[in-house]
């Protein structure tokens, strides 16, 4: 089992899209996959067809009171696949504020996952992080074994990864965890754009084989599938976005199996 935090403090780099569609592609291959929506904007939850504001219980309840609401109780199965979602909620922002002064605040998600894994088996867990480096993202990093960093091929990509690097170093001063990079994923790539190509080459030069060979091209069908509340492979399997994420799933499985 791998627990992967999909993280980048910059918004709009396809963290949520990657979490939903990569998870769906792995589930479609028979891998039991859990998606965790840790972003108070709860876009992953909405994008998978669940209206978070109508939920009685979601992740904020789990983080604040795991004895009363264990993680297992809030899971939703998606589209008859072995794909499960722990839904997010706007109240996660409230939960984060409540958790901040608690000394175990960074370990809440890890402890909840440990309890879940005593009863449930998963091959992959993906955590969709908020676009910030606060307590929720700390929870994701401490709970994870791997990082997946989606990034646009833009000038500021390096600065973003430097900031994330600093955060990881900072967390090592006070928290106990172990994490390694699963890969850097180039997203929203525009075909035929020389600048994107140049930046992508520079990122590959710095991160070597940690950068996935697969790139995710800009594709309107991805956005449309989110509006429809389903992963792209169920919405339009022939779309470029679907093919990109299928290819990414294969590449990740190849990496995992060495």
């Amino acid at each position: 089992m791998k627990i992967v935090a999909v993280v980048n403090q910059k918004g709009g780099v396809a963290k949520t899209t990657t979490t939903a569609n990569l998870g769906a592609c792995l589930a479609a291959r028979g891998y039991r996959t859990l998606l965790i929506d840790l972003d108070p904007q709860a876009n992953l939850t909405l994008g998978l067809g669940i209206e978070w504001y109508a939920l009685e219980c979601s992740l904020n309840h789990v983080l604040l009171d795991p004895d009363e609401v264990p993680l297992k109780n809030i899971l939703h199965q998606i589209a008859d696949l072995p794909l499960y979602l722990a839904p997010g909620h706007l109240d996660l922002a409230h939960a984060e504020a409540m958790l901040m002064p608690r000394p175990d605040s960074a370990y809440r998600l890890r402890n909840s996952l440990e309890d879940l894994f005593k009863e449930e088996t998963f091959d992959w867990v993906f955590i969709d992080c908020p676009p910030s480096l606060g307590t929720l993202t700390q929870n994701a990093i401490v709970a994870s074994s791997h990082l997946l960093i989606p990034t646009e091929p833009k000038f500021y990509a390096f600065a973003g990864m430097d900031t994330l690097n600093k955060m990881i170093v900072g967390l090592t001063k006070g928290l106990r965890f172990r994490i390694e990079l699963l890969g850097v994923l180039l997203t929203m790539y525009e075909r035929g754009t020389r600048l994107h190509q140049t930046i992508a080459e520079e990122i590959r030069e710095r991160f070597g084989d940690k950068v996935f060979q697969t790139v995710i091209y800009k594709n309107v069908r991805l956005s449309e599938s989110e509006v429809e509340g389903m992963p792209i492979i169920l919405f339009d399997r022939r779309a470029t976005g679907a093919q990109n994420y299928e290819q990414l799933a294969e590449e990740i499985l190849n990496r995992a199996t060495g």
Partner: peptide
Amino acid sequence: AFEFNALIQGVSTL
């Protein structure tokens, strides 16, 4: 000017 070592090499405080 930036540093990526912790990301590339991974970290463990266990």
